[in-house]
């Protein structure tokens, strides 16, 4: 039983950053802007917020510090994504190229800035992890469920779940969501009924920036003791989750869970007795999420749910 609880707790460490970042990507692409800059945005978000934590951790600790760091991560991610938004919306640049530029720029900027800002002049930013919640009061005592979801967790897990619910409501139940989706499917039509396409696309990209930055923070806090200008390709993995999830928040959540679970299995199968007995190579578990993505792409390519206008710069004059 302990193994099961452990697996679920670890799966959350993988799933939540993927989920949050993929949801961010969803908002951007639903508004019609392809955002492959997620990796770079994660790095910038992680950089700013971890730097904040490292400067503030002498005066405060625990959840208040984490909440402030989350705010910083989201703001810095959103600001950084503005570069992508400006290039691809106002300047009508190729969105893949501007995204790549951001991905290349982010690690360089964060290394340079970390060295300039930190008194020690090093590129790694150390932080002390005071954010883990050993046990949520009351809820943690519930048998089984408490062990699974309310022990050994981070506040960010619940924030991730909240973001999922808010994202689904925002996208499907509000005027804003309808307009956003219209801009991604047929911006000319949206414009003809008075929706400001540029503004909606800016909103989409900035939401993706905020969530991407948050994802960067969650990623670093749960998996390392310092920030070293990298998020190990999880921004790109989040793109795979986004496609696997067919641009739908609930499917994205399932895809993130699936990816997270398979990643957990591939990394920890050596500690799970019955998996060791199966004698399956660890490589197989590692491959499964990617093979599954390919299979899903093959079967869904005909009726892909990808926003029709994603990647196409909107030109008002071409109406």
């Amino acid at each position: 039983m302990n193994t099961l609880f452990f697996l679920i707790q670890q799966t959350m460490f993988f799933t939540i950053p993927l989920l949050v970042v993929a949801l961010g990507g969803m908002f951007s692409e639903r508004s019609g802007v392809i955002n492959i800059a997620l990796e770079g945005i994660m790095i910038m978000g992680g950089f700013c917020s971890i730097l904040f934590i490292s400067f503030m951790q002498d005066t405060m600790a625990g959840q208040p510090l984490l909440l402030l760091a989350i705010l910083i991560a989201m703001i810095s991610g959103a600001v950084f994504s503005l570069l992508h938004a400006y290039a691809s919306i106002n300047m009508k640049a190729d969105q893949t190229i501007s995204g790549t530029a951001l991905n290349l720029m982010a690690p360089a900027v964060s290394i340079f800035a970390a060295r300039m800002i930190q008194p020690s002049g090093v590129q790694q930013i150390q932080f002390t992890n005071t954010f883990r919640i050993a046990k949520v009061p009351v809820l943690g005592d519930i048998p089984i469920l408490g062990d699974m979801f309310f022990q050994n967790v981070y506040l960010t897990t619940y924030i991730g779940v909240a973001i999922l619910i808010i994202a689904a409501i925002l996208l499907y139940k509000t005027k804003f969501g309808l307009r956003l989706r219209a801009c991604g499917e047929h911006p000319q039509a949206a414009d003809s009924v008075g929706v400001n396409v540029y503004r909606m696309r800016y909103a989409g990209v900035m939401i993706s920036g905020a969530l991407g930055g948050l994802g960067g923070l969650i990623f670093v806090v749960t998996t390392s003791t310092n920030f070293n200008a990298t998020v190990a390709g999880y921004g790109f993995l989040a793109l795979a989750v986004l496609i696997f999830g067919q641009w739908n928040p609930w499917r994205i959540a399932l895809a993130a869970l699936f990816f997270g679970f398979m990643k957990t299995i591939s990394a920890t199968y050596s500690s799970i007795p019955w998996l060791v007995q199966l004698q399956v190579s660890g490589y197989v578990y590692k491959m499964i999420p990617y093979i599954a993505t390919l299979v899903v792409l093959v079967f869904s390519s005909r009726n892909s749910q990808a926003p029709k206008a994603a990647g196409v710069p909107y030109d008002q004059g071409a109406r």
């Binding site: 670890q10 460490f13 993988f14 998996t223 390392s224 999880y234 990394a267 920890t268 500690s271």
Partner: peptide, 17 residues
Amino acid sequence: FAATPENQARAAGWYQS
């Protein structure tokens, strides 16, 4: 030679067991 969630999870698994 990188800090990744995989490495974190593997170590966490060992500690847990």
